[in-house]
Amino acid sequence: MSAPATTAPAAAGAPPPVRRRGPFARSLHRRYVVTAYLFLLPAFAFFGLMFYLPIGNILANSFRTGPQADEYAGLDNYTRAFEDAAVRNSFTVTLVFGVATTVGAIVIGLALALLLNQKLRGRVVFRAALLVPYLTSVAIIGLLWRNILDPQLGVLNRVLADLGLPTQTWLNTHPLATIVGVTLWMTVGYTMVLFLAGLQGIPEEYHEAALVDGAGPWQRFWRITLPLLAPTTLFVSVMAVISGLQAFGQAYIITGGGPAGRTDLYIFHVFNVAFTSRDFGYASALSFLLFLVIVVATVVQLRAGRKGEVQY
């Protein structure tokens, strides 16, 4: 009797045999895909209605003019935007505001995170207290600081007068610096929390090894902590730039864009064009230009941030 035939073992390193999926497997895969898209459909509908449709509407209106944006104007609104001195002023003010708030949020937020990451008594209370302004409405923050900084009736001037110190008129002499300071007071608690999360995600073994090698506190911060915080810093900077370019409430409530346009933030200027001058086509063009600036700034930041990421 002949021995039963056996299958020869596959040669070492040979690729595994290709298994063709049958009709049942393909049908099951198709069901998985359809089910996944059905679950994603509400999110797609939400973004389409609340994000992409308004952008398309603004883009369409940017080529029109008139109080109702019902007359076709071609590229006239965009040409006018680049020639408008008031637009250039508001964009410059917004750029300075955005850079100042972004750098301040990163530096102060990181410093507070490093401080409150130590084993200090009451650090949880301080963390919560610093986060409260961020959780408060911009309208409330604006009204609060407008009353505090009011030259005649403000609380700050009363305290300074009681202490025998000269009173201030910061809303007239340094209006942009004032709203930058108010914005930082409002947002550094959020950036502090983000940096705290990043710091607590760094393995302690790296610092212990550097300490054994004789590295000092500054060397450990510069060579270990800061590079490993690159993803957090990138996220903070992107969000701060977007928030700074879209700031509105600070100028609208605290300074009214003045004095002499020194706090005329871009979105506040667009608001005045749309609802004071009733030029919705021109306001749409200005809004779409800001959208392009934000997209370009975000892409540049993300690409630069990915090049700076380090892994240990």
Rank of each mutant, 00 (worst) to 15 (best):
205 E>M: 12
121 R>D: 02
180 V>R: 01
13 G>F: 09
294 I>K: 11
299 V>P: 06
51 F>Y: 14
238 V>E: 00
169 T>K: 12
152 Q>G: 08
268 F>R: 06
66 G>K: 01
162 D>W: 12
27 S>F: 13
16 P>C: 06
137 S>T: 14
269 H>P: 05
5 A>M: 04
25 A>C: 07
185 W>Y: 10
200 Q>C: 02
286 L>H: 07
166 P>I: 02
92 T>S: 14
166 P>C: 06
304 A>L: 14
6 T>N: 08
190 Y>M: 10
167 T>F: 02
11 A>E: 14
200 Q>P: 00
180 V>I: 15
299 V>G: 07
126 F>R: 01
209 A>L: 11
263 T>R: 06
124 V>G: 04
231 P>Y: 00
6 T>Q: 15
179 I>P: 01
185 W>C: 09
241 V>S: 07
255 T>M: 07
30 R>F: 09
298 T>Y: 09
32 Y>L: 14
239 M>S: 15
258 G>F: 04
275 F>N: 08
183 T>S: 13
96 V>R: 12
259 P>K: 08
91 F>V: 12
257 G>Q: 10
121 R>F: 15
282 Y>T: 01
122 G>S: 09
103 V>S: 09
125 V>P: 05
231 P>C: 02
168 Q>C: 05
125 V>W: 13
108 I>S: 07
291 F>G: 03
170 W>K: 04
166 P>H: 06
109 G>R: 05
162 D>F: 09
244 G>R: 02
228 L>Q: 08
246 Q>S: 10
103 V>M: 03
237 S>T: 15
278 R>S: 08
195 F>C: 06
2 S>P: 14
139 A>C: 09
175 P>F: 03
236 V>L: 07
93 V>M: 06
68 Q>D: 11
310 V>T: 07
228 L>Y: 02
278 R>Q: 10
121 R>A: 12
255 T>V: 06
139 A>I: 14
106 I>A: 15
296 V>S: 08
305 G>D: 01
16 P>R: 15
150 D>S: 13
243 S>Q: 11
112 L>D: 00
93 V>T: 10
118 Q>G: 04
101 T>G: 02
76 D>V: 04
247 A>I: 02
99 V>S: 03
113 A>R: 01
59 L>W: 11
179 I>A: 04
241 V>R: 05
91 F>M: 13
207 H>I: 10
106 I>G: 05
14 A>R: 10
14 A>C: 09
181 G>K: 05
225 T>A: 12
54 P>Q: 02
92 T>L: 14
59 L>I: 13
125 V>T: 14
28 L>N: 04
72 Y>N: 03
305 G>K: 01
117 N>K: 05
150 D>F: 07
71 E>Q: 10
200 Q>L: 09
110 L>V: 06
92 T>Q: 12
49 L>S: 08
130 L>K: 03
224 I>Y: 12
49 L>W: 09
199 L>T: 03
290 L>F: 00
277 S>P: 00
262 R>M: 06
242 I>H: 04
19 R>M: 05
187 T>W: 13
286 L>E: 04
289 L>T: 01
57 N>S: 14
144 L>H: 13
